[in-house]
């Protein structure tokens, strides 16, 4: 199947006068097939949100440099004019944000925010749009949708707001949905509802979903393929079963080991990753390359601090490491 979205060698650097550039995304490549759920996982500062904003072309116009290519149906989104991109946003690809309260307009009723998209992108008439909006709210599981159309965002709970936001994102049946930490601000029981909803919607509509999260648990239950990001680069990519069964990159491996397991014995010492992202080395520097994870890596060799590891493919897996975790140990 051909890919719906192909991101190739995406680089985003934030520029500030008088200061060296900050590279947030450093040559990220991945693709998304129609109807597929792809995960981008990583900790704060790994570049996962910046990647999604770059794909949506929602980064501020000034103060950053985006290079590489983002192709959707073979067309480079980065080359589109602003108005052409606006046309595609909402219609072909849309986005769900972490904080539903700040992504909704607080002074406009939720219904109007849905119908706005319908009238603009699908050219619907007012009444038809309202009917359709109620249907959308119903579809994302908001009870009593007709009445809810007139509610303001602050009158809804966090979970309901996120549902409303999903309804807006779905209004034009986009072929690609990007969800940036859609459940991080929600409670677990509400998170379960929302994840369930997203999974259902993907199955019903055939929309592709890019799921951006820091939570490996969310990824494990939802995504078909998982990209693990570290310091702006993809360090490992695999099918979810493969990734969790045998994480090869020491970072992925360490991350899995450091999460307390609900189904494991309590009280055991967790295999923590030492240090913090502040210790990272630059991937590439004028003085030479390195693996950014080296100072925190339990498997680091001399070479790790000297040579930038390349992304190597082995079957469906992509790995960027000089000394990966052996399969047997990873499966343990």
């Amino acid at each position: 199947m051909t890919a719906l979205l192909e991101v190739e060698d995406l680089r985003v650097a934030f520029t500030r006068r008088g200061e060296p550039d900050t590279v947030a995304v450093d040559g990220v490549s991945f693709d998304v097939k129609p109807g597929e759920i792809v995960g981008l996982v990583g900790e704060s500062g790994c570049g996962k949100s910046v990647t999604s904003l770059a794909v949506m072309r929602l980064l501020p116009e000034r103060g950053n440099r985006v290079t590489g290519s983002i192709r959707m149906d073979g067309e480079d989104l980065l080359a589109l004019s602003d108005s052409a991109m606006r046309e595609r946003r909402g219609r072909d690809l849309s986005m769900i944000f972490q904080d539903p309260l700040s992504s909704l307009n607080p002074v406009i009723p939720v219904g109007l925010q849905v119908t706005e998209v319908l009238t603009r992108h699908r050219g619907m008439k007012k009444h038809a749009a309202r009917r359709e909006a109620a249907e959308l709210l119903d579809r994302v599981g908001i009870p009593d949708p007709t009445r809810r159309l007139d509610s303001y965002p602050h009158q809804m709970s966090g979970g309901m707001r996120q549902r409303a936001l999903i309804a807006i994102a779905l209004a034009c049946t986009p072929r690609l949905l990007i969800a940036d930490e859609p459940t991080t601000a929600l409670d677990v029981t509400i998170q379960a509802q929302i994840l369930d909803l997203l999974e259902q919607l993907v199955a019903e509509t055939g929309t592709a979903l890019v799921m951006i999260t820091h939570d490996l648990g969310v990824v494990a239950g939802l995504c078909d393929r998982v990209n693990v990001l570290y310091a702006g680069r993809i360090v490992e990519r695999a099918d979810r079963h493969e990734l969790f069964r045998a994480p090869r990159h020491p970072y992925t491996h360490g991350l899995l080991g450091s999460i307390p397991r609900l189904d494991g014995p309590p009280g055991e010492e967790l295999a923590a990753i030492r240090g913090s992202v502040n210790d990272n080395l630059p991937w590439a520097a004028p003085e030479g390359g390195a693996c950014a994870f080296t100072p925190r890596c339990p498997r680091a060799l001399d070479v790790c601090g000297e040579v930038t590891p390349l992304a190597e493919r082995a079957g469906t897996r992509l790995l960027r490491c000089h000394n990966p975790v052996p399969v047997a140990e990873g499966a343990a």
């Binding site: 494990a220 239950g221 079963h241 999460i259």
Partner: peptide
Amino acid sequence: AVPLPDPEAEDRRERILLAGD
């Protein structure tokens, strides 16, 4: 509702989804 970092367990388990807020 707590997501498990384990695809096999995730596929097996039955969710009790609570209604509403």
